[in-house]
């Protein structure tokens, strides 16, 4: 167990925005090919945590290691190579609104991997099908899609390049239960079939049970509890229990 280097390791990560303390000493390991799910009330810094791995947010202190290497000590080029192997689904979708749907999905293939347009489009259409959308949306623009459809396109874009590590920020929020299940299956498939490592944020306990190998609860800037899904049901932490059983009184909603 301890001979394996974690894919991602957070050590004492702190981050504040002005006077607002968001992350206050995060310690978490994500092992290779593991699917870790982060749960926690909204505004607790879940998105910030993921963004700090991707270099979008810079931690104030602490280290983030990827495959055993401190990301802040990498050269610009090394960091770029590393980011090539990552895929990210943004909470808000973050689709390029000046591009058609298929161009959005194919973007990483064409720009990053240098694939030719025709081949990339074929893959884009295939991914579109995997997220439950028909080929006729391919020629539309993001603004012509509903929120849930945009989310699925963003998911298709995140997995199109077959990344080694995938970050999903609330992948099923805004989807109906049936479609949410399709997406859960897809995430499981990415992890199991492609051998990817996944770090997912969700509020959906159904998703948690379906996709998580490990669950981590973020509370007041720290990982309050972590363990397997089975342990989740038997854990004796009050806050976690209330969160899991959906007793809203305990959950601070920002």
């Amino acid at each position: 167990m301890n001979s394996v280097t974690p894919k991602i390791r957070f050590t004492n990560v702190y981050k504040s925005f002005g006077t607002k303390k968001v992350l206050q000493g995060i310690n978490l390991d994500v092992m290779p090919q593991e699917s870790v799910v982060i749960i926690g009330g909204s505004g607790t810094g879940k998105s910030v945590l993921i963004k700090s791995v991707l270099g979008i947010v810079k931690p104030d202190s602490g280290t983030i290691e990827i495959e055993g290497r401190d990301v802040s000590k990498l050269s610009h080029h090394e960091r770029e190579q590393q980011l090539k192997k990552f895929g990210m689904l943004f909470q808000g979708g973050a689709l390029f609104d000046s591009m058609k749907i298929w161009q959005n999905i194919a973007f990483g293939l064409i720009q990053g991997a240098g694939m030719d347009k025709k081949e990339a489009k074929t893959i884009a259409l295939e991914k579109l099908k995997q997220v439950g959308l028909t080929a006729d949306v391919a020629e539309l623009y993001p603004s012509e899609l509903s929120g849930g459809m945009q989310k699925r396109v963003a998911l298709a874009r995140a997995i199109a390049t077959k990344p080694d590590v995938i970050f999903f920020d609330e992948p099923t929020t805004g989807l109906d239960p049936i479609m949410a299940d399709v997406i859960n299956e897809l995430i499981v498939k990415c992890v199991k079939d492609l051998g990817a490592t996944a770090l997912t944020i969700t509020h959906d306990m159904h998703s948690v049970r379906k996709i998580a190998d490990k669950v981590a609860m973020l509370f007041e800037g720290k990982i309050l509890w972590q363990g397997t899904v089975a342990e989740l049901d038997t854990c004796d932490n009050d806050y976690v229990q209330k969160f899991v059983s959906g007793m809203s009184t305990a959950v601070k909603v920002a």
Binding site: G55, I56, M88, G92, A94, F96, F107, Q111, G112, R157
Partner: peptide, 21 residues
């Protein structure tokens, strides 16, 4: 306006996760 919108909707962050500077 264009880059500003791309910034606030995280499209600029998305670019860097798709191997594009």
């Amino acid at each position: 306006a264009e880059l500003g919108t791309m910034r606030v909707t995280e499209q600029i962050d998305a670019l860097s996760t798709l191997s594009t500077n």
